[in-house]
Design a protein around this nucleic acid. Structure first.
Lengths: 234, 234
DNA sequence: CTTGACAGTGAACGTATGTTCACTCAAATA
DNA sequence: TATTTGAGTGAACATACGTTCACTGTCAAG
């Protein structure tokens, strides 16, 4: 039986079923496996927070979860694959949040005041995931870095098509729309990094980001693409 | 054995002086110490490039340098202090480069076309240092992270005073100048990260960055600060 | 009721880690 | 010339690492 002696990793998992059993070994076989998997993901997330993924060990994770090191391999082939799983779940949640943002952005004016608080709230509620992404984006194993960059690229493209659709697509070349989307996403990534880094300063960070985003969009509104094939050959 | 370092144990040290002695033990006592110190810094820089500072070991560094592990302590008390030294030397070089940039920026138009190539060249010639900064900025030991953030803050402030001096300081509140400087520095940091990440794409990255920086400055030129102390809140 | 699948166990392995300590021996100082 | 200094040595330590292997006990399918 799995012992639960280390720092209590009580599952705050939203169970659709009313958990009649308070013990840690309830549920079906598959449910128990999934619970261990979650515990491993959470433990890795917590341990990596004090340094980074490449600096933690399989044995530390296993110890924190309360299982023997070998049990790790039943769930992940390596720490790198664990990292990819964390990237996956981080961006799955992020994309759901972005659906809200897309919806609440009918005009440019509302775009900022409507979107930023939603993003900030999501960062606040998923701090460890954002911290993970911010760190591993530049310092993670190559495959993890690539996965994160790919996800951000996808988001940038979505924002670009959204700008092209709802904005004045006439005055911008499609290349310039892409560049604008990239500028915005890069800025929001930077802002998210700051929210993660210093949660206490959320209010100030947000106020500044709002002004900066407005500066940026003033630039966009006064922008005229010169030639069709200006700087962007795609 | 997850990773190996097939690095040649030979000294790849670029000597500017015509080495009359082919051996590696010329010079005074202090010079020899300094040479070992440099070798340690370079070795750590190279080893961290495959993961990050927190993931490498004192022994790996010592092995790569070609000294016994204990010799490390004659130069640095810990890997963290080594990291701080690397931050220091990275930004010392960076600041020298920025002096050039400040000088060659009399107008906004020239600011972009004159500055970006200088920055790009510096990144190209100091790739390993920029890679180090980019990684450790988010994933390094806390004190290293803090040191990097502090250096970037100083640069941002310098840019702000430079904008206030040479630009039209009338139409912006001082707070907004700071926000604009932060916007620019953040963007350049992102651009530098990309140059480091994919040196092959330097030309395209630079072309896009030039357009994006122009978008950003169009925003700045059309910006009017609403109230003295506040941002553009409505 | 039997049986196979399989999450988790526990020992064992060879190797790598940080740090200590007493030491050498050539250059710098006196 | 005699002495001090200090960069680099090499052994030793306790601990941690990833990975292997044969195992156990229980849930679910046959």
């Amino acid at each position: 039986m799995p012992r639960v002696e280390p720092t209590d990793p009580a599952r705050p998992e939203p169970e659709s079923e009313p958990a009649s059993e308070s013990g840690s070994e309830s549920g079906s076989r598959a449910e128990r496996k999934e619970r261990t998997r979650r515990a491993i993901l959470d433990a890795a997330l917590a341990l990596a927070a004090d340094s980074n993924l490449a600096a933690i060990s399989l044995r530390q994770v296993a110890k924190q979860v309360g299982v023997v090191p070998t049990a790790f391999y039943r769930h992940f082939g390596s720490l790198e694959l664990l990292g990819l799983a964390l990237v996956d779940e981080s961006f799955r949640s992020l994309r759901l949040m972005l659906l809200d943002v897309w919806r609440h952005a009918p005009e440019y004016r509302d775009f900022i005041d409507g979107s930023l608080p939603i993003v900030a709230q999501h960062v606040r509620e998923n701090r460890s995931h954002y911290a993970f992404i911010a760190r591993e984006r530049t310092a993670g194993p190559p495959r993890v870095r690539e996965a994160i960059r790919h996800e951000i690229d996808l988001i940038t493209r979505e924002l670009a098509t959204d700008i092209a659709r709802s904005g004045a697509a006439e005055q911008y070349s499609s290349a310039d729309i892409g560049l604008l989307a990239d500028l915005i996403v890069s800025f929001v990534v930077t802002m998210a990094e700051r929210l993660v880094d210093d949660p206490e300063a959320e209010e100030r960070t947000l106020a500044q980001a709002r002004t900066q985003l407005r500066m940026l969009l003033v630039g966009a509104l006064n922008w005229r693409s010169r030639e069709p094939a200006d700087g962007g050959s795609r």
